[in-house]
């Protein structure tokens, strides 16, 4: 047998017309890319770009070694960062869970009013990054970690809500029917038929989001929403590169630890 016969059937099934369409598709992609590239770089100053290696070497030489003594000023903001992520996640969960049940087609109490509304809230929350939420909330509530917590919570609603309502829609209908057939009430059907089925997904999603939120809360301070990002912003503004490099190392360390924790917890749950 020759190697050629190992070709997947997908290639053999293509009619000439389909192949032509595929080529036209690829060509259109390339043309679109070139056009986008032209538009995007219209206002790029290429002198800066060519000078970038020098600039990088310059910043690098100033940033190292990190200023280790600055660490004592970072513990407080680090604690705030973790709190923003954790409390924000908890608040997000509290709002996302009811929304998910409203949005799932098999549990929604009202298909034509509440379901579209819940879906819109989920999409809106997902479309807007937590930094933008923070920007908005700082402008409304003033700077501080409250704005950070709310920003994280508002962003988490969409993520948790979407994954959870998809999990609810994928539940095994026969288990729900079996509970219904015993004469259980709606609330009992929910807690016995559906909740046990989505619980592992729920834990996994929540911990996963917490892990992401640790990363995101580390930078919210850039717009004034508390945490270690505020120190980063201050150090950047004063061009204190050794502090910047220390802060980034601390953020990286936190991210690695949170990823490890989330992987452990998810492994234990699933």
């Amino acid at each position: 047998m020759s190697i050629a016969s190992a070709d997947p059937p997908i290639w053999q099934h293509r009619t000439p017309r389909k192949r032509l369409l595929l080529w036209v598709g690829w060509l259109a992609c390339v043309a679109l890319f070139v056009w986008c590239w032209e538009r995007m770089t219209q206002r790029t100053i290429w002198a800066f770009v060519w000078d970038a290696p020098n600039a990088a070497a310059d910043i690098g030489s100033r940033a190292f070694p990190p200023r280790w003594s600055y660490m004592e000023r970072l513990w407080g903001p680090l604690w705030d960062t973790i709190n923003i992520a954790t409390l924000g996640t908890l608040l997000g969960i509290a709002m996302a869970v009811p929304l998910a049940f409203l949005a799932a087609s098999n549990t929604t109490p009202s298909r034509w009013i509440l379901r579209p509304l819940a879906l819109f809230i989920i999409v809106a929350s997902r479309s807007i990054n937590s930094l933008i939420w923070a920007l908005l909330l700082v402008s409304i509530l003033g700077p501080g970690i409250l704005a950070g917590i709310l920003a994280i919570a508002l962003r988490s609603i969409g993520f948790i809500g979407k994954l959870l309502y998809e999990a609810i829609e994928e539940t095994d209908i026969s288990q729900v029917e079996a509970i219904t057939a015993t004469g259980a009430s709606q609330a009992q059907i929910l807690t016995y038929g559906i909740v046990p089925q989505v619980l592992p997904a729920f834990y996994g999603i929540s911990v996963f989001r917490w892990d992401i939120n640790i990363r995101e809360s580390a930078i919210l301070g850039l717009v004034g929403a508390g945490g270690i990002g505020a120190q980063l912003n201050a150090s950047l503004n004063t061009l204190a590169w050794p502090q910047v490099s220390l802060i980034i190392l601390v953020i990286l360390g936190t991210v690695v630890v949170s990823e490890w924790v989330s992987a452990k917890v998810r492994h234990a749950v699933i």
Binding site: D172, Q175, E177, A178, T180, A181, G183
Partner: peptide, 18 residues
């Protein structure tokens, strides 16, 4: 009325995680 009608299913339909 459903309370007094027992039902047994083909794929058992137990709540698997309980």
């Amino acid at each position: 009325a459903r309370r007094r009608i027992g039902m047994i299913f083909q794929e058992y339909a137990l709540v698997e995680r309980l």
